[in-house]
């Protein structure tokens, strides 16, 4: 049975590398089907982004590794949805 997974992360990141590069890199992680990043707020040195990742069997550790390598930190995991069919919030 194929399961779907959706995860929404609250991420604090520097302005550079930009979300263009971050989203590209995240979408190349095994099992990731789609990535959406929305900037929520912008400070002088950092910005807060809502990172939504959807896919089949991706591993959170690998996602975290990419995010950390780009100098960003996950402040919180705001939503996880997992199952044969994703539920709407």
């Amino acid at each position: 049975m194929v399961y779907d997974k959706l995860m929404v992360l609250d991420v604090l990141k520097p302005h550079e590398p930009s979300i263009l590069e971050l989203s590209k890199k995240l979408s190349s992680v095994a099992g990731v089907g789609a990535v959406d990043i929305t900037i929520v707020s912008v400070d002088r040195r950092v910005e807060t982004a809502k990172v939504t990742i959807e896919g089949g069997d991706f591993q959170y550790d690998k996602i975290l590794k990419v995010i950390n390598d780009y100098g960003a930190t996950v402040k919180s995991i705001d939503r996880v949805s997992f199952g044969k069919k994703l539920t709407s919030p």
Binding site: L12, P14, P17, R44, R45, V46, Y70, G71, A72, T73
Partner: peptide
């Protein structure tokens, strides 16, 4: 160092 303070993380081993 300034960016580390702002992002609350160590950045030396990162892409930055």
């Amino acid at each position: 160092k300034e960016l580390e303070r702002a992002t609350l993380s160590r950045l030396r081993e990162t892409k930055i």
